[in-house]
Design a protein around this nucleic acid. Structure first.
Length: 854
RNA sequence: GCCCGGAUGGUGAAAUCGGCAGACACAGCGGACUUAAAAUUCGCAGAGAGCAAUCUCGUGGGGGUUCAAGUCCCCCUCCGGGCACCA
């Protein structure tokens, strides 16, 4: 993923005193991640098939576990560590449950930071990026993440981006990619255009201090709006996605049902089409309001110099407000144009105004103003003395009669000609239909979502595969032939100048042959938004080496949809709406069968430190390398899962990592101490076995359950700690041989299997120590023995009038009468109810007894 | 303004279906081991009162439903996030 305002971590490595967990000669049985982890890493790295998926006909159910790919900034930050620890635990667990797992990783490798680094250090973007990738891949391997590196995807390499170009050509062919001149967001810091989705609060997504400007430019757009309804409706079916993300996307798409109504301009040929969601209030319209940039405003301005000046002023106010993200708070100003428009419903002439709060790029850029029934229109009318006309009244008893009255569910039309008495909601439909029949309007739907602007005036991105030929096609850009792909990004490029696209300064790149007439043509010099790269990368994992197509459809249809997608909520709109769009386009091209890319989405919380998001400027950045050095990768990733449920923000406390390290040391000591007994196995008959085995099977049940959807690994790990505490409590008994070797073997083997998804290096080492066969995280996940897990006795709290009095022990599964009898027989209970009448006894078997007394 | 989350000890948190609030950890305190420290290990630990047994209060605030509410309903406060003169 492109980094969203995340500062890079890198370079400085703290001077750390020799780790306290390092091996000491006198105590060879001590846990030493510094020895164990590199040892197993070497073993795993050498085995290319270790994390590879099986063939499609393996007979196993498939499971596609995916974490969002990182931007190769040069170093993993702690947020990555958490994200990948969640995905890796899940992938390993699914392997152990017998699934055919696809668990890939790649690099979102195009983007501006590479160019900035080039400017700063003089290293070419490609070189900088590739060396960062190498460093981060190494870090990931050091963390012990189980990725199938044979499917690695690097988006800045031609074997990937040529398919961006291929998709672009397909979209151009289908009319989904087009060029238009429009107002676009320009970041002066990035020196490039940004998509609407990349403008956050009026500022650049990369530069939170930089106000985005608006410029009129001709740019390439992808027609995401064609899928607006499907993107919206599809959200209903995405039950495996967080409600928050679905809501954010709903808001972003911003569907609004209403009507277009044409108001003819009096004394002229022009007409003004307004968009309204309340056509039922049209008899109350007392003016028409235009955006300053509306064509009719401009036409009037041409005829009237004084008016032109005023309109320009309104436009300037709007621009200033927009750029400072204060559009919502703009002080309303308007000017009467001196002209009138005719309301087609009642033939009334209403004044035409131009106002600064009317936006040219939403709806039609024109509204009808109904001050009696709209807050904004009311405010504007009050300010300029425009008349109010009530045309809606509630049809229920209410005191809510003040104007503006905006109700519509329980309200009817009044003083509205033939529509008088109609219910508002019904009238909206009928009046829009009436307008259509009579040729002065139509029901319509408006969206907040706009088409995706993908042109970037930058070097380090996918070249757009289009050319311009002045001779044979002066108006229309021409697509290059598919056989010409990839259009390679040139290597030696001067990116130091900031005006215009860097590729435009390379004649060898710009000069192209016209695909139509064969003459000299100009190549498009803008590159694609990096969000194009991340919109479909996960399909490439299914068939990463394919040189004839982006991927083979059969392979994609086997793996898709992604079973579980895991990443940060900061991509809730950007990446996650683009990739849903891309999937629908690919489906319509016949490449895939799925409608949505991911069946389930999990958004993990942020990692914070000292109460704030980590950033270099705050000086609260935690380096994963430091953590590995001090506590090892296993303790670091296990802490990331233990400290908070994965969907919540996590406050990083180094003491906590130390605590996990202590826990692992304890397990290490116990396992090495009893591995001899465990290896011997043998009978399982000692009387003291039962309590230990009961705890074991309760733990297996708990951890297994946590993996089935809830993922509260903090509670999984805590239950494993409880098991280890139970083992410690039985240590003396085990020393004395009072626990049978068979039970010891089962407890330790299962314990290590339960830890395998969370601490893979540690588990591998301990598995070997126990004489376990094969690879630990391909070993069958331990099964719960319900019989062994069942408690013999349960403690039942006894309440009198809802207050806890005592706890009585009864055999598990006791019936109501037995529990009641036990409660009433208790001395404390007797004392408490003495001399009182027991009115009612509530017995919840296995849970509690409550005596209601008077 | 609308929408989505959240608020529980000194701290991170648990309580998954309305049934013992604070599991498991971190930090802290005390004991053992040690010449000493670290490490390890055993124990204490929501707040208040009491020598103690024990009692009272306690899940942001106020009301309600219920034998029983952190959990359900209504109202409110604060924090995080999204959308916003979007007609």
């Amino acid at each position: 993923m492109p980094e969203t305002r995340t500062s890079e971590i890198g370079g400085e490595t703290a001077n750390i005193v020799e780790s306290s967990t390092a091996a000491e000669p006198n105590q060879p049985q001590r846990y030493s991640p510094a020895e164990i982890e590199p040892k197993w890493q070497a073993v795993w790295d050498a085995d290319k098939t270790l994390y590879a998926a099986d063939a499609h006909d393996s007979g196993k159910p498939k499971y596609y576990c995916l974490e969002m790919l990182p931007y190769p900034s040069g170093a993993l930050h702690i947020g990555h560590v958490r994200n990948y620890a969640i995905g890796d635990a899940l992938a390993r667990h699914m392997w152990m449950r017998g699934y055919n797992v696809l668990h890939p990783m790649g690099w979102d490798a195009f983007g501006l930071p590479a160019e900035n680094a080039a400017l700063k250090n003089g290293v070419p973007p490609r070189e900088w990026t590739l060396s960062n990738i190498a460093a981060m891949r190494k870090q990931m391997q050091r963390m012990g993440y189980g990725y199938d590196w044979s499917t690695e995807v690097t988006t800045c390499l031609p074997d990937y981006y040529r398919w961006n170009q291929w998709f672009f050509l397909k979209m151009f062919e289908k009319g989904l990619a087009y060029r238009k001149k429009s107002k676009v967001n320009w970041c002066p810091e990035c020196c490039t255009v940004l998509a609407n989705e990349q403008v956050i609060g009026g500022r650049c997504w990369r530069h939170e201090d930089t106000v985005v400007e608006l410029r009129d430019l001709t740019q390439w757009f992808l027609r995401i709006t064609k899928y607006a309804d499907e993107l919206l409706d599809g959200l209903e079916k995405l039950e495996g996605w967080p409600e928050k993300v679905r809501t954010m996307q709903r808001n972003w798409i911003g569907r609004s049902e209403g009507a277009h109504v044409d108001f003819a301009v009096a004394d002229g040929d022009a007409k003004i089409t307004v968009f309204t969601t309340r056509v039922d209030t049209i008899f109350g319209a007392t003016s028409v309001q235009l955006a300053p940039e509306h064509a009719v405003s401009k036409a009037f301005a041409l005829e009237d110099d004084a008016l032109r000046v005023q309109i320009e002023e309104l436009l300037e106010q709007q621009k200033v407000a927009r750029e400072s993200d204060a559009l919502g708070a703009i002080e309303k100003h308007g000017v009467f144009t001196g002209r009138f428009a005719v309301n087609p419903f009642n033939g009334e002439r209403v004044p035409i105004w131009v106002a600064n709060y009317i936006l040219a790029d939403y709806g039609t850029g024109a509204i009808m103003s109904v001050p009696a029934h709209d807050e904004r229109d009311f405010e504007f009318a009050q300010k300029y003395g425009l008349p109010l006309r009530r045309v809606i009244a509630p049809n229920v008893d209410t005191t809510d009669l003040a104007l503006p009255y905006t109700g519509e569910d329980e309200a009817v039309l009044i003083d509205s000609g033939e529509w008088t008495g109609e219910n508002c909601l019904e009238a909206q439909e009928k009046m829009a239909a009436f307008a259509k029949v009579n040729g002065f309007g139509t029901p319509t739907v408006t969206y907040r979502l706009k088409d995706w602007g993908v042109s970037r005036q930058r070097y380090w991105g996918t070249p757009i595969p289009m050319v311009y030929c002045d001779k044979c096609s002066p108006e229309e850009p021409l697509p290059v032939a598919e056989s010409e792909l990839p259009i390679l990004l040139p290597e030696q490029v001067d990116i130091t100048q900031t005006n215009g696209s860097p590729l435009g300064r390379i004649p060898e790149f710009v000069n192209a042959k016209c695909p139509k007439c064969g003459g000299v043509a100009r190549r498009e010099t803008d590159t694609m938004d990096t969000f194009v790269d991340s919109s479909w990368y996960f399909y490439r994992y299914a068939d990463a080496k394919n040189s004839a197509a982006p991927f083979d459809s059969d392979k994609a249809n086997y793996w898709f949809p992604i079973d579980q997608y895991i990443g940060g909520v900061e991509h809730a709109i950007l990446h996650l709406i683009y990739s849903r769009f891309w999937t629908k386009v690919m489906r319509d091209l016949g490449l895939v069968k799925n409608d949505e890319p991911a069946a389930r989405l999990f958004t993990q919380g942020m990692v914070i430190k000292d109460g704030a998001k980590m950033s270099k400027s705050k000086g609260n950045v935690v380096s994963p390398d430091d953590m590995i050095l001090r506590y090892g990768a296993d303790a670091t990733r296990m802490y990331a899962l233990f400290a908070a449920p994965p969907d919540r923000d996590l406050e990083w406390q180094e003491e906590g990592v130390a605590g996990i390290s202590r826990f692992l040391s304890k397990v290490y000591r116990l396992t090495t101490k009893f591995s001899g007994v465990a290896r011997a196995k043998g009978s399982m008959t000692a009387p003291k076995d039962q309590a230990l085995l009961r705890r074991l099977h309760q733990t297996i049940a708990k951890v297994t359950h946590d993996f089935d959807g809830r993922w509260h690994f903090n509670t999984s790990i805590s239950s494993i700690m409880i098991l280890v505490n139970e083992i410690t409590a039985n240590e003396a008994a085990m020393d004395a041989g009072e626990i049978s070797p068979g039970a010891v073997a089962e407890v330790f083997r299962s314990l290590i299997l339960l830890l395998a998804p969370f601490a893979p290096f540690f588990a591998a080492e301990m598995w070997e120590e126990l004489g376990g066969e094969g690879v630990v995280f391909r070993t069958q996940w331990p099964a719960v023995n319900e019989e062994l897990a069942r408690d013999e006795e349960v403690e039942i709290p006894v309440q009198v009038n809802g207050k806890l009095v005592t706890v009585v022990k009864v055999p598990a599964g006791s019936d109501e009468a037995a529990v009641k009898a036990a409660a009433l027989a208790d001395e404390k209970v007797k004392a408490r109810i003495e001399g009182k009448t027991v009115v009612k006894v509530i017995v919840v078997p296995g849970k509690l007894v409550n005596l209601v007394v008077k």
